[in-house]
């Protein structure tokens, strides 16, 4: 056992040297971890505050940090379809399936991501919508394409039009060189479910450290009651809606009766 100790020590030391010497750590706090969709919900803005702190008292902080916040919503599968003119009318002729892609994707940074790090680092860390893995079903394979692929650009464009995909080089503001805030905008049509927030700190084009947070979008009150009734008790819900229709129709005929 004692003879093995130097060996183990050597492994541990090598491992420590290989890992980035994270002298800084991130401390973040989200303004609200639970977004409730009520009847007057019309989108919500959240604020993520954070600081860059030295891990121990000896570390000296740098001055040129870059920060990227990536928020991803619950995953779903979408088909992107393309129309073409066939016999004078516009018909969907081609489609690609985007498998398990985020229903919401926001990339917020203090300056455009392309200026923060070289392309290979961005690709490896999936920073920016162009570098985010959006797997498509192509034949029997699942693969992401180049960002210029027509289906991929169309998909990102359509999602961006609804405010569900967004990339902003001004989404993160440094209040002091080490204190920052990020504004997360959830549109009115935001999907419900669990959201992950990943915060990545860069300096001189390299990843320094990262941390995460999470938030949840849920229906509350009346909205929750209706949505759950529709999902869990479909038949009773349908019956109740049909009865409501009959009642409305009957009331109208009574109120407006003229004979």
């Amino acid at each position: 056992m004692m003879r093995r100790l130097p060996f183990i020590l050597a492994i541990v030391l090598t491992a420590c040297a290989a890992a980035p010497a994270a002298a800084e750590r991130l401390v973040v706090s989200l303004s609200n971890h639970r977004v409730a969709i009520t009847s007057n919900f019309d989108g919500e803005n959240l604020v993520l505050f954070g600081t860059i702190e030295p891990t121990d008292s000896k570390t000296k902080l740098r001055q040129n940090y870059d920060l990227v916040v990536t928020v991803t919503g619950p995953r779903h599968t979408l088909r992107t379809r393309r129309k073409e003119r066939v016999l004078g009318i516009w018909v969907n002729v081609d489609a690609r399936e985007f498998v398990r892609v985020p229903s919401y994707l926001a990339v917020l940074s203090n300056r455009p991501v392309s200026e923060i790090a070289p392309p290979d680092v961005l690709r490896l860390e999936q920073v920016g919508i162009d570098n985010f893995l959006l797997p498509q079903r192509i034949g029997p394979d699942l693969a992401d394409t180049v960002p210029q692929d027509p289906f991929r650009t169309a998909f990102v464009r359509l999602e961006s039009q609804q405010g569900l995909y967004q990339e902003s080089g001004a989404g993160v503001t440094f209040l002091t060189p080490t204190v920052f805030r990020a504004a997360i905008q959830l549109p009115a049509a935001v999907p419900t479910g669990a959201y992950a927030i990943e915060v990545k700190l860069f300096a001189d084009g390299a990843l320094v450290t990262r941390t995460g947070s999470a938030l949840e979008v849920v229906k509350a009150g009346f909205e929750q009651f209706i949505a759950e009734a529709a999902r869990d008790h479909g038949f009773l819900y349908g019956l109740a809606t049909a009865l409501m229709a009959l009642l409305t129709g009957w009331l109208a005929s009574v109120i407006f009766r003229r004979d």
Binding site: H76, L78, R79, T80, R81, E97
Partner: peptide, 9 residues
């Protein structure tokens, strides 16, 4: 020319 359709959550 492009449109989206939800396949499944």
């Amino acid at each position: 020319l492009y449109s989206l359709r939800l396949v499944g959550a």
